[in-house]
Amino acid sequence: MSIQHFRVALIPFFAAFCLPVFAHPETLVKVKDAEDQLGARVGYIELDLNSGKILESFRPEERFPMMSTFKVLLCGAVLSRVDAGQEQLGRRIHYSQNDLVEYSPVTEKHLTDGMTVRELCSAAITMSDNTAANLLLTTIGGPKELTAFLHNMGDHVTRLDRWEPELNEAIPNDERDTTMPAAMATTLRKLLTGELLTLASRQQLIDWMEADKVAGPLLRSALPAGWFIADKSGAGERGSRGIIAALGPDGKPSRIVVIYTTGSQATMDERNRQIAEIGASLIKHW
Results as ranks from 00 to 15, higher is better:
236 G>V: 12
55 L>R: 08
35 E>Q: 12
111 L>T: 03
99 D>A: 04
81 R>F: 12
33 D>C: 02
269 D>Y: 02
73 L>F: 04
206 I>N: 02
43 G>E: 00
145 E>M: 10
118 R>T: 09
182 A>Y: 04
65 P>M: 11
58 F>M: 14
45 I>F: 14
218 L>M: 11
112 T>Q: 04
227 W>Y: 14
143 P>V: 09
282 L>F: 10
67 M>T: 12
119 E>Y: 13
180 M>P: 03
225 A>M: 14
204 Q>E: 06
223 L>D: 03
24 H>T: 05
249 P>V: 06
280 A>S: 14
235 A>Q: 14
78 V>W: 09
185 A>V: 09
106 V>L: 15
282 L>A: 10
72 V>A: 06
105 P>Y: 05
245 A>L: 05
203 Q>F: 15
63 R>Q: 14
254 S>W: 08
233 S>Y: 11
76 G>S: 09
62 E>A: 02
89 L>F: 11
57 S>I: 04
156 H>Y: 14
221 S>G: 07
71 K>G: 00
92 R>H: 12
262 T>A: 08
213 K>G: 05
186 T>I: 05
157 V>P: 11
174 D>I: 13
169 E>D: 03
185 A>Q: 01
277 E>S: 09
121 C>H: 01
60 P>R: 14
264 S>I: 04
140 I>K: 11
83 D>S: 04
180 M>Q: 03
68 S>Y: 00
272 N>S: 12
251 G>K: 15
74 L>R: 00
150 L>W: 05
38 L>N: 13
176 R>W: 10
198 T>A: 04
191 L>T: 04
147 T>R: 11
224 P>S: 12
220 R>F: 15
103 Y>P: 04
219 L>R: 04
237 E>K: 11
94 H>K: 03
226 G>M: 07
258 V>C: 09
151 H>D: 07
213 K>L: 04
104 S>C: 08
232 K>Q: 00
176 R>L: 11
257 V>E: 13
195 E>A: 12
281 S>E: 10
163 W>Q: 12
69 T>A: 11
218 L>N: 02
286 W>S: 06
167 L>I: 03
147 T>P: 05
126 T>I: 08
122 S>H: 06
122 S>V: 06
273 R>E: 15
231 D>Y: 14
96 S>N: 04
115 M>F: 12
52 G>N: 14
94 H>R: 04
174 D>F: 14
97 Q>H: 09
248 G>T: 02
89 L>R: 09
68 S>W: 00
27 T>G: 15
148 A>S: 08
259 I>P: 00
87 E>G: 12
232 K>A: 01
177 D>G: 05
145 E>C: 15
115 M>G: 04
58 F>S: 10
262 T>D: 09
89 L>S: 11
278 I>P: 00
95 Y>W: 15
103 Y>Q: 04
112 T>K: 14
28 L>H: 13
132 A>W: 00
30 K>S: 14
217 P>G: 09
191 L>E: 05
266 A>N: 02
28 L>A: 09
272 N>Y: 11
187 T>P: 01
189 R>G: 05
34 A>L: 05
120 L>P: 00
119 E>V: 03
61 E>W: 03
107 T>N: 11
188 L>R: 00
128 S>R: 00
195 E>K: 06
135 L>F: 05
42 V>M: 14
246 A>R: 07
95 Y>A: 07
137 L>G: 08
190 K>Y: 15
279 G>I: 06
137 L>V: 12
73 L>D: 05
217 P>T: 14
46 E>Q: 13
64 F>D: 00
43 G>K: 00
79 L>W: 01
41 R>C: 09
259 I>S: 07
163 W>H: 12
82 V>E: 11
136 L>Q: 02
33 D>I: 03
113 D>H: 02
111 L>Y: 08
169 E>L: 04
96 S>V: 12
142 G>L: 03
213 K>T: 03
78 V>M: 14
154 G>N: 12
57 S>C: 04
174 D>A: 09
266 A>K: 04
131 T>S: 05
244 I>D: 00
132 A>M: 00
72 V>E: 02
162 R>P: 00
200 A>Q: 04
79 L>C: 11
216 G>Q: 05
128 S>A: 00
204 Q>H: 07
173 N>W: 13
145 E>P: 12
180 M>N: 08
26 E>Y: 12
178 T>N: 02
166 E>A: 14
282 L>E: 06
66 M>P: 01
25 P>Y: 08
193 T>V: 04
219 L>N: 05
176 R>S: 08
163 W>F: 03
78 V>A: 12
120 L>N: 02
153 M>Y: 02
105 P>A: 08
162 R>V: 08
81 R>G: 05
118 R>M: 05
242 G>M: 14
214 V>D: 10
39 G>V: 07
47 L>K: 10
207 D>F: 05
93 I>G: 13
211 A>K: 15
195 E>Q: 09
120 L>W: 01
192 L>H: 05
36 D>H: 03
100 L>N: 12
46 E>C: 15
76 G>A: 06
184 M>A: 03
155 D>P: 01
166 E>M: 15
118 R>W: 13
116 T>L: 13
105 P>N: 07
41 R>E: 02
37 Q>F: 12
245 A>C: 11
254 S>Y: 02
45 I>Q: 08
206 I>T: 12
31 V>P: 01
39 G>T: 04
273 R>M: 06
176 R>F: 14
135 L>D: 01
36 D>M: 07
210 E>I: 15
144 K>T: 05
92 R>L: 10
193 T>S: 06
48 D>T: 02
276 A>P: 02
141 G>S: 15
110 H>D: 13
104 S>W: 01
234 G>I: 00
202 R>S: 11
117 V>S: 09
167 L>E: 11
105 P>G: 08
127 M>L: 09
43 G>Y: 01
131 T>L: 05
193 T>Q: 08
152 N>W: 13
203 Q>W: 02
225 A>K: 12
192 L>V: 04
208 W>P: 01
246 A>Y: 06
101 V>T: 10
51 S>V: 11
266 A>D: 07
187 T>L: 15
34 A>P: 06
219 L>I: 05
285 H>T: 06
29 V>D: 05
165 P>Y: 09
267 T>R: 04
82 V>T: 11
69 T>E: 05
65 P>N: 10
51 S>M: 10
228 F>K: 14
241 R>E: 08
140 I>Q: 08
173 N>T: 11
117 V>F: 09
252 K>C: 08
142 G>Q: 06
274 Q>S: 10
65 P>K: 04
158 T>V: 11
242 G>W: 00
103 Y>I: 02
77 A>T: 13
281 S>G: 08
74 L>E: 04
44 Y>V: 07
187 T>D: 14
156 H>R: 09
157 V>R: 11
124 A>E: 01
36 D>E: 08
229 I>A: 13
206 I>K: 13
95 Y>N: 08
57 S>M: 02
213 K>V: 05
163 W>N: 09
48 D>Q: 02
29 V>S: 13
58 F>T: 07
178 T>A: 04
254 S>P: 06
227 W>A: 02
39 G>D: 08
249 P>I: 14
89 L>P: 13
144 K>M: 02
284 K>E: 06
248 G>E: 01
225 A>C: 04
265 Q>I: 12
233 S>V: 07
279 G>N: 03
168 N>F: 08
44 Y>G: 07
203 Q>G: 03
196 L>D: 14
153 M>K: 03
197 L>R: 15
65 P>Y: 14
238 R>Q: 08
209 M>R: 00
269 D>L: 08
119 E>F: 07
223 L>N: 12
52 G>S: 09
268 M>T: 13
176 R>D: 13
